[in-house]
Write a protein that binds this DNA or RNA. Structure first.
Length: 423
DNA sequence: GCGGATCAC
DNA sequence: TATGGTGATCCGC
């Protein structure tokens, strides 16, 4: 858990996990990112969060140092029992497909404006980019990067404002096709879905011509084909751009595949989990399996059970029906807002927007949550659960207003200096 | 139930 | 000049 002596933060450095990032000058790119960010409030907050993660890791390492041989042995036995049980549940009979339209927004924009095809381009704004094409990726320009930094990396970058209605329309066309192959397919986002192809394959005995259709819409279409959802997701990432990867449905093929898999590739293991695992000497899923007894002592049951499933190449073999939503929210970022009257009227506006969205789905809710982010990027949420469900703007505002007033009071005589509000 | 964190897209 | 919005889940109170 060495600190940030290198001069840059692991949370901010270039994420070359994505495709199209091979063979570029990481050091040079990171230097530009850091120089552009340094000293900003955003950077300072990232630094603070990084320290917190480091502390978490230190705490974990202390715990590790206190583990006895005895405890480890007992844990090992437990781990082996669970592994046997999980092994019995292994099902290799399903054919699960994960479809991912790589650089989807950028691909749609290039389809509609062919001049963009030869240029580095990204969809988004100077504040934030949603995605970039492969020309731009060569410069280190990627999703979730602010446009003004991207411009430093690639001065000729063309930034196209997003047209979500258009992406939705394209997505709807594609989803109609999905439904032909699996009426129960699960959309993850506009450009991503899971399908169960098992029944389709039994009926037609052949692979569909699905790829050709996508090619006319979005040139980068990725298919991952595997016996479960976890593996299918990783497989679709395998042959970027524009490819497919089929993982055979045998235990041996699955285990070989998983051995070599870096933990960060697994959905659900993000930056922080990766860093914690790295601190324990774990970077690939084979390490994960080797260290499972230790992990069972350092992580929650939910966490290490998940790790265990991953290390065995197990995942969900049925695609869950789209479930009922559990929350609905709306939030907005703006220039500093410190006047109480302005904060209250913004809060009312947000409540009205939210009420409108809720009306569309005929929803009600019992818990009202207020979200605040100050100019230093520190986030706070304040919630209140009622005995009855509310739906109108007035009802929501009545609660949100009190939560907001409490926070203002709490800070006074200093004003709340906000950059974001949501509820 | 609450609040902070993590994660995915 | 400038670092998003939405939804879900988990952990430790």
């Amino acid at each position: 858990s060495d600190n940030t002596k290198e001069g840059f933060l692991s949370r901010m450095a270039l994420n070359d996990n994505k495709a199209g990032m091979e063979g570029l000058d990481r050091d040079k790119i990171n230097k530009i990112i850091m120089e552009t960010s340094k000293g900003s409030r955003f950077y300072e907050n990232e630094l603070k969060k990084e320290q917190q993660v480091n502390q978490r890791i230190e705490k974990m390492m202390l715990q590790k140092a206190q583990i006895t041989e005895q405890q480890l042995k007992k844990a090992q036995a437990q781990v082996e029992r669970v592994a046997l049980e999980l092994e019995r549940s292994r099902d290799l009979t399903r054919v699960i497909v994960h479809v991912d339209m790589d650089a989807f927004y950028a691909a749609v924009e290039m389809r509609d404006c062919p001049e963009l095809k030869d240029k580095p381009m990204a969809v988004g704004s100077m504040s934030m980019l949603s995605t970039s094409n492969y020309h731009a990726r060569k410069f280190g320009v990627r999703a979730a990067m602010p446009g003004f930094i991207a411009k430093k990396l690639c001065p000729n970058l063309v930034i196209v404002p997003p047209n979500f209605d258009k992406y939705r329309a394209v997505s709807d066309e594609i989803r109609e096709i999905f439904a032909d192959y699996d009426p129960h397919f699960q959309p993850v986002s506009l450009d991503e879905a899971y399908l169960d192809f098992t029944d389709h394959l039994e009926k037609r005995q052949s692979w569909p011509e699905i790829m050709f259709y996508y090619d006319s819409i979005a040139p980068f279409t990725l298919l991952g084909i595997a016996p479960n959802m976890m593996l299918a997701k990783v497989c679709s990432d395998k042959n970027k751009p524009n490819g497919q990867y089929v993982l055979p449905s045998t235990r041996e093929a699955v285990m070989d595949f998983v051995q070599a898999l870096p933990v960060r590739k697994v959905s659900g293991i993000g930056k922080v989990s990766e860093k914690m695992l790295n601190a324990l000497g774990i970077s690939s899923c084979s390490h994960l399996a080797q260290q499972m007894a230790l992990l069972s002592l350092l992580f929650s049951e939910t966490s290490w059970h998940h790790f265990m499933q991953v290390s065995l190449g197990l995942g969900s073999t049925y695609i869950p029906r789209h479930e009922e939503r559990k929350s609905m929210s709306t939030e907005r970022t703006f220039k500093e807002l410190s006047k109480v009257e302005e904060q209250l009227s913004l809060c009312r506006e947000l409540c009205e927007d939210l009420a409108e969205d809720m009306k569309k789905e005929d929803l009600k809710g019992k818990t009202v949550t207020l979200k605040l982010k100050n100019v230093n990027f520190e986030v706070k949420t304040r919630a209140l659960t009622l005995q009855y469900a509310v739906a109108t703007a007035d009802e929501i505002f009545a609660v949100a207003k009190d939560l907001l007033k409490m926070e203002i009071e709490n800070e006074s005589p200093q004003p709340l200096r906000l950059r974001l509000m949501g509820n």
